[in-house]
Write a protein that binds this DNA or RNA. Structure first.
Lengths: 223, 223
DNA sequence: GGAATGCTTCGATGAGGATCGAACCATGCG
DNA sequence: CGCATGGTTCGATCCTCATCGAAGCATTCC
């Protein structure tokens, strides 16, 4: 009865199947148009439009208008984190998946989490970055000076954007360990895609490495 | 349209105001009876009962029957973590709180998070435990051998329960930093209450230290 | 300008689900 | 036993909200 933050309001926004599908699609990190999201959610355009305005009003989405296209994206990494947490519970509580399935297996190995890489590969990478002292952890994760020059030598440039930390830990629902988020995490994913070491699976958050790309990635980040 | 874990199902369980109030009350960590939860949620007993069976079916709650009393509690720390994440988003997007209010201030300083202490005090404590090398962090948080003898000297006994780690980091929505969860975190909260250093605020998650208790707590954990 | 595309608003329909009173089980007490 | 207390089930009511077709704006292309 006492009033804290309105958690029911936020949760009920995620609690509709159409909206949940949209948010799930946006966990891929790329902003999508209203029609793409309608397709993704399996509803008509008017319905999707109504859902999108509710999500906007609830503060879960941001909107970028470009000409006659309107691109919707997740509002913040915090929102993405919340959705990962809900996914984690749903996975744990859900019908015991008899067979993980191939697409699922790919998701566990590597997937996009908002704007950075998640999954076993990402967890392994973060471990190695600590081992090599390119990242340090005290209270938060920080970039060491060795790390700063290391990444800039790789052509990964990191500038601390306002209100967005360079390094952040993000909890992985499949592995229950942390992987790297923040602008550095985002920049690394950008490089992986730009170098064509891996490609985004169509209509999925899965990230699939090519044989050569996997070798390169492991040489650079896991050796 | 593709079927992942059923996130809408979980979110919609939290998305009803009555159920959200119940879950929020259970974040205090103590299990409550159906009538207490009905009162908490501001609904009649039949309504509460219906909600509770839905939450049970959804896997968010556990039930312990004792005589004619039935105690409901959160099913897992993972569920608690999800709720904290939702609270965090609700806080962030919610109506800009004009005045934080005294009860809120107390919550920020120290509160119960499921079964362990959260808030500024808890965050400071975790920092000190690392500084004093009583805890170590590599991939996860671990108890050092110095830490093991230290805590047992304090009369805090920690046994790794099945499926429950001794130390875990839990993200604090008020401070956006980690505090200590796991069986050790739970044992420390137990000690704080047992020693009467602090008491639980009635009908709230807030934990209020007595002047003397605060001194003792700071001497033992923050010095 | 006119036509086409992307998206939103309006209006009507329908279904799911939250709610409570009353009746119904179960446990404990005298 | 009989009565009180804690809890659930049943039934009926009601209301929110998801849905889509049709119409209305806005932008771009020809």
């Amino acid at each position: 009865m006492r009033e804290g933050p309105d958690i029911a309001r936020i949760a009920s926004l995620v609690g509709d199947p159409a909206r949940a599908n949209m948010l799930n699609a946006l966990m891929g990190g790329t902003a999508l148009t209203a029609s793409e999201l309608a397709l993704e959610a399996g509803v008509s355009l008017p319905t999707a439009s109504s859902h999108l305005s509710k999500l906007m009003e609830g503060g879960l989405l941001t909107l970028a208008s470009q000409g006659r296209h309107r691109y919707y994206g997740l509002a913040s990494a915090q929102v993405a984190g919340m959705i990962e947490a809900i996914i984690g519970v749903a996975e744990a509580v859900g019908p015991k998946r008899v067979r993980p399935g191939p697409r699922d297996a790919a998701m566990r190995v590597a997937r996009v989490c908002y704007d950075h890489l998640a999954g076993e590969q990402a967890v392994a990478m973060l471990d190695r970055l600590f081992d090599k002292k390119l990242l340090l952890r005290d209270n938060e994760i920080r970039l060491s000076s060795a790390g700063a020059s290391h990444f800039s030598a790789l052509g990964i440039d990191i500038q601390a954007k306002a209100r967005r930390p360079v390094c952040r830990a993000c909890l992985d629902w499949s592995v229950r360990r942390s992987h790297l988020a923040g602008t550095l995490g985002a920049a690394i994913l950008d490089k992986i895609i730009a170098e064509k070491w891996a490609r985004r699976e169509k209509d999925s958050r899965a990230v699939v490495f090519s044989p050569g790309g996997k070798r390169e990635f492991e040489r650079v980040f896991l050796s």
